[in-house]
């Protein structure tokens, strides 16, 4: 016996691709329309930002709002300049960024590992479920005083806060991803005599990769909440510290500046994870 005829439905669909270049007029029009749509979206996005900043600046300039309370884009830029000049800007950014990344990394690795253990043992999952649910709904800031007393007032306290804020979601999301794996595929692994470790490595982990990427996206946002919350409670430096300090001494320029930088950093970190996700889902 040699090659069998191809199975039904296995026709090659002729499709012109970018290399061909000789598209029909209709297809060219379609491509143009798609490109125009993209341009409109990008331009609108930029316009909204420019409008907000412009109106804010204008209102502050003509004293429609009091820039002492609301600050203004020009004052934010000036504050950034001052902070760079006295050399503290990157110090504060570095501290907060370090705390956030450390807390995020610990939460993801530890959370994923705990999820693996819970997946491996059905009874462990059932026994621990109510604890996880309660921990998930507990407002973690309530633990603030305890954390200070137990761990102290250093970076470790803030990293700890970041971890407890984000780890529960890491556990729950990862576990949900593991459990959602197709049962037919699990049966296939079982029929081949695969044990738990093999099933985990060959099936569960790769199959739940999209869920892991989703977990990272949620966890990165929570890590920022954790680190800034931690800095509110106890800190000597960092962007959260700048915000609290600025509020206390009524330097709203400082508050706005720190918030603005926070926006950039959080957006950037989310962007990096989105890029990693795209790479993995290809």
């Amino acid at each position: 016996m040699t090659a069998l005829p191809r199975a039904a439905g296995d026709k090659e669909i002729p499709m012109k691709n970018k290399k061909d270049n000789n598209f029909s007029r209709e297809h060219l029009a379609y491509l143009r329309k798609e490109r125009n749509k993209k341009i409109v979206i990008t331009v609108s996005r930029i316009l909204i930002l420019v409008a907000i900043l412009g109106i804010w600046e204008l209102c502050a300039q003509v004293k429609l709002i009091d820039p002492f309370i609301t600050s203004s884009p020009s004052r934010v830029v000036k504050t950034i300049g001052d902070l760079i000049k006295n050399g503290t800007l990157f110090y504060h950014i570095g501290i907060t960024l370090g705390e956030t990344i450390a807390g995020f990394a610990i939460a993801v690795v530890l959370g994923y590992s705990i999820a693996v253990l819970l997946w491996a043992s059905d009874s462990a999952m059932k026994i621990l479920e109510p604890y996880i649910v309660v921990l998930n709904s507990l407002p973690k800031i309530a633990l603030g005083p305890l954390i200070i007393i137990w761990i102290g007032t250093g970076y470790t306290a803030i990293i700890f806060m970041t971890v407890i804020v984000s780890i529960i979601v890491c556990i729950m999301n990862s576990l949900a991803g593991f459990i959602a794996v197709d049962r037919t595929k699990l049966l296939l692994m079982r029929s081949m005599g695969a044990g738990k470790v093999t099933t985990l490595r060959k099936l569960i982990m790769p199959a739940s990769l999209p869920a892991l990427m989703n977990t990272l996206k949620v966890a990165v946002g929570l890590a920022w909440i954790g680190s800034i919350m931690g800095e509110y409670i106890v800190s000597k430096a960092g962007l959260g510290y700048l915000i609290v300090y600025g509020g206390q001494v009524f330097k709203l320029d400082l508050v706005m500046t720190a918030t603005f930088i926070l926006c950039l950093l959080a957006g950037g970190m989310y962007g990096i994870i989105a890029i990693i996700e795209k790479r993995f889902n290809k």
């Binding site: 197709d182 037919t184 595929k185 049966l187 296939l188 692994m189 005599g193 790769p206 199959a207």
Partner: peptide, 24 residues
């Protein structure tokens, strides 16, 4: 064992799918 649904792993190439039982 061959099942109702093919249960091929989409993150593996056809060849890698065929090697799966060998790995397991």
């Amino acid at each position: 064992y061959m099942l109702q649904r093919d249960a091929l792993f989409p993150w593996r190439s056809v060849e890698q799918n065929i090697f799966l039982p060998l790995e397991v």
